[in-house]
Design a protein around this nucleic acid. Structure first.
Length: 574
RNA sequence: CGGGGUGUAGCGCAGUCUGGUAGCGCACCGCUCUGGGGGAGCGGUGGUCACAGGUUCGAAUCCUGUCAUCCCGACCA
């Protein structure tokens, strides 16, 4: 491609409404343009990158035995009513009516379509296992789209759905997909991590997310390399910290604590370590109108996702109102405690093993010290409630060494694999006959990759102050040829044209910058759009029989003899 | 959905308080010089000042309403 024939819409200045680096660079490099909130046009430079990602994904899905198909983006409401999600899905489902007034939705995902399709197409276990995928535009009407294509409403996704006679078959394909995903992200040149994930409302027994590691990531991941453990912090198990509960050694004492309503204030006021305090949080119970107390050690934070998994706790988690707190505890938040509290008390593992601790007295501006479970209040229900923090022991650890502890890193979720079980096959009545001729609901798995999001994630991970640095596998062009004086020097023009033709003929995607621009502009543009390899052809070098080569990541350039440049480049780009 | 910003040329912004012919830089077009990291000069093109209504002799500017968009949070995966 020649720049004279390519829409190179680079911007010198950063558009004001772009916050994160990938969004800024995608706009500046002329990859995308916003059409509406969360809706973007992909310009040629951007689309070239997305196609590269798609192709790698397609190759590896095919290699893993999945078959590509294409389902409609506009889906009839009946399918969603059948699965119950027409009501359940909420505002994210973009609904519309056709000219006859019939309800449709723009597909945010395709379990319904594939489920009803395969209910018809698959009749016998002999057709199983089967795995189908598509690469297609989805629409989720996010409440708050943000960060460019990182969290857009319209986006490109690879979604795959597998079908099995039994769970063993599902597990087998799940493992194959796990491997395929690892291969895909490796081939894309991305630093990533597979992490255990919450199965959320979908349910099922296993789920992994694939995260591109980047400080700007929206998700926090707890990692322990020694035990090969990585989990979304939403899910990561928090072990008990501290020693086993010891016998009470202090008497229960009432202390006036006027105006001290936070843990930090109490510790300061009583000159007590924060590990000797507990906090008591009141939340709505699963049963309408009830309230439940959640207890954590003072220095720990509540993991709301864990809490709402307890059968006594309302899901989604919902805080008790001030009135409910007043009537249940007899005081305002800040003075709640476990003594004399007539509520179910669910305590985090690390709070359960405390003795002689400090808590509120359920009376405004009064606290208790020397509190002990059993002696002073009921034995609590033990439950994993807290958020893990860096330095916690890994849940798999069998020792307490430094390298058995968790570190917290941030990631961008670019892939997610689920074992769905029979949830959708039951909803869509997708059965097949087993080898006894009996109908059985098929086991399903589903496997997503955020194709457009990967483009942004790759930039988050690969950029410098001059612009994007594409991994070779997804660069819009592998090599840029920058002539000095293309329109002035016959010699330079001839060498560039020949180089361009030969490299192009050997299958290398080359951008020849034939604009009549000053070198600085050409260098700046090439760096901004992130082309990984560059050669500069100028009369000065040519007179010495040299052509200059530079890797985008390298500090400086090197001279290569003109007569060996082709082999050199073929080797460098291999 | 709650809170906070912002809407003036393709991009970045000033002008709004204090009403009086719509400006600057970049980009873009033409010419000249220049030619290894966003160069310089001269001359140009481009705007229903988000929209609607109101006040006024006169509104980008004041008033009312609407919309769009960005950020934080909640929500979602």
């Amino acid at each position: 491609m020649r720049t004279s024939n390519f829409l190179l819409s680079t911007l010198k200045e950063t558009p004001a409404d772009a916050e994160i680096i990938s969004h800024q660079l995608m706009l500046r490099a002329g990859m995308i343009r916003k059409v509406a909130a969360g809706i973007y046009t992909w310009l040629p430079a951007g689309l070239r990158v997305m196609r590269k990602v798609e192709n790698v994904v397609r190759e590896e899905m095919n290699r893993a035995g999945a078959q590509e198909l294409l389902m409609p983006s506009v889906q009839p409401a009946e399918l969603w009513q059948e699965s119950g999600r027409w009501e359940m899905y909420g505002g994210e489902l973009l609904r519309m009516k056709d000219r006859h007034g019939r309800d449709f939705a723009y597909g945010p995902t395709h379990e319904e379509v594939i489920g009803s399709l395969m209910a018809n197409e698959i009749r016998s276990y002999k057709q199983l296992p089967a795995n189908f995928y598509q690469i297609q535009t989805k629409f989720r009407d996010e409440r708050r789209p943000r960060f460019g294509v990182m969290r857009s409403r319209e986006f490109v996704m690879k979604d795959a759905y597998s079908f099995h006679l039994d769970h063993a078959g599902l597990q087998e394909t799940y493992d194959v997909m796990y491997q395929a995903y690892s291969t895909i992200f490796s081939r894309l040149g991305l630093g990533f991590r597979a992490v255990e994930a919450d199965t959320g409302s979908i349910g099922g027994n296993a789920s992994h997310e694939f995260h591109v590691l980047a400080d700007s990531g929206e998700d926090a991941i707890a990692v322990c390399d020694k035990y090969d453990y990585a989990s979304n912090v939403e899910l990561a198990e928090a072990l008990q910290v501290g020693n086993e509960r010891s016998a009470p050694s202090e008497d229960l004492k009432r202390v006036d604590t006027p105006g001290q309503h936070t843990i930090a204030a109490i510790c300061d006021f009583l000159d007590a370590p924060i590990e000797s305090t507990i906090k008591t949080l009141l939340v709505k119970g699963a049963e309408e109108g009830t309230v439940v107390a959640l207890v954590l050690r003072g220095d720990h934070e509540l993991n709301e996702l864990k809490a709402e998994k307890h059968e006594l706790v309302a899901s989604p988690l919902s805080w008790a109102s001030d009135e409910e707190i007043q009537s249940a505890a007899g005081c305002a938040p800040g003075s709640i405690g476990t003594v004399g509290l007539d509520l179910p008390i669910i305590a985090d593992r690390s709070a359960v093993n405390l003795s002689d601790f400090i808590c509120g007295a359920n009376e405004d501006d009064v606290h208790l010290t020397g509190v002990n479970w059993v002696r002073d209040c009921a034995e609590p229900i033990e439950f994993d409630l807290r958020k893990v923090v860096a330095g916690d022991l890994c849940a798999r650890a069998t020792d307490e060494q430094e390298d058995s502890r968790l570190s917290i890193t941030r990631g961008i979720e670019v892939g997610h694999i689920f074992q769905l079980g029979t949830k959708y096959s039951e909803a869509m009545n997708a059965t097949c006959l087993d080898n006894n001729g009996k109908a059985a609901f098929m086991q399903m798995g589903c496997y997503g990759i955020g194709v457009s999001r990967i483009v942004a994630a790759a930039i988050e991970q690969n950029h410098d102050d001059r612009g994007i640095i594409w991994p070779d596998a997804i660069a819009p062009f592998k090599l840029v040829v920058t002539p000095i004086g293309y329109n002035k020097s016959e010699k330079v023009k001839a060498v560039c044209d020949e180089l361009y033709q030969e490299l192009t003929a050997s299958g290398i995607e080359v951008l020849l910058d034939d604009r009549n621009e000053r070198p600085g502009i050409m260098f700046a543009d090439a760096d901004l759009i992130g082309i990984p390899h560059r050669v500069v052809v100028g009369e000065k070098s040519l007179d010495k029989g040299m052509i200059e080569y530079k890797n985008r990541r390298a500090e400086s350039a090197e001279d290569v003899a003109q007569d060996s440049i082709l082999e050199f480049l073929k080797a460098a780009l291999a």
